[in-house]
Amino acid sequence: MDFSASLTADTLTVTRGGVPILQNVSFTLSPGQVLILRGPNGSGKTTLLRTLAGLQPPLAGRVVSDPETVTYGAHADGLKATLSVEENLQFWASVHGQTDITQAVEGFNLAGLVHRPSANLSAGQKRRLGLARLLVTGRPIWLLDEPTVSLDVASVALFADAVRTHVAKGGSALIATHIDLGLKADSFDIGPYKADPAKAPDSNDGFDTDGFEGAYL
C-alpha cells in the first residue's frame, strides 16, 4: 500500500438533514500529518468526517482523495457480539485484502482477549478492538470520530502510540476529539466555517426562497 496519500477538502459545503451546516471548508491533510478537528458538539464534525469518507455527497465543493486510501472510524465500532476478537479483526483484515492481525492485536494490548467473544468485552476493550481495526485496513488516511470515548488513560496512551507509529510510516490522521492526546498535531477549528443560513447556497432541496413569494397563493 502506498502510504504517501493525501486528502484535500476543496471549498466543501456539507449538509445535515438537507440543510447546509458547514461551508467553504478547505484544508489539506498531508502524509505524516495529524490534524485535530475542533468544534463544539453539534457543529458538524461527524457530518464533515462522513463527507470526507465518501459516505455522503457534499452540497458544493469536492473532496480530493483516493477512496481506497481512507478509512473511517465512527462512534459505532462495527463489531459483531457473537464473533471473537480475533474473528472480528480477521474479517476486517480480509475485507481489506490483509492477512496479518498480530500488529493490531499487540498494538492495542488485545493479546489476552483474542478468543473472547466481543459481547463479553468491556466498553473500553470494545473501543480498543474498534481502533485496532484501523491497523488491519492497511489504509494510510484515518478519519476518526471521537476515538477516545470510554478509553482509560493507559489505553489513550496506546492509541496515541498507534497514531505516532502510523504517521511515522507516512500515514495521516484527522481526529475529532476534545481531549489532549499528547501528539505533535495541527489543529483545525471548524467554528469559522459554520454555514450562514442567510448566505448558504440553498440546501440541496432546491427550494430557494428568493423570488419564491411571488409564486405563492
Partner: peptide, 14 residues
C-alpha cells in the same frame, strides 16, 4: 409543504 420544511429547517439552524 416542501418549502415550509426547508424554511423550518433553516429556522432551526439559525
Amino acid at each position: 409543504r416542501r418549502r415550509l420544511h426547508a424554511l423550518m429547517a433553516r429556522e432551526r439552524m439559525s
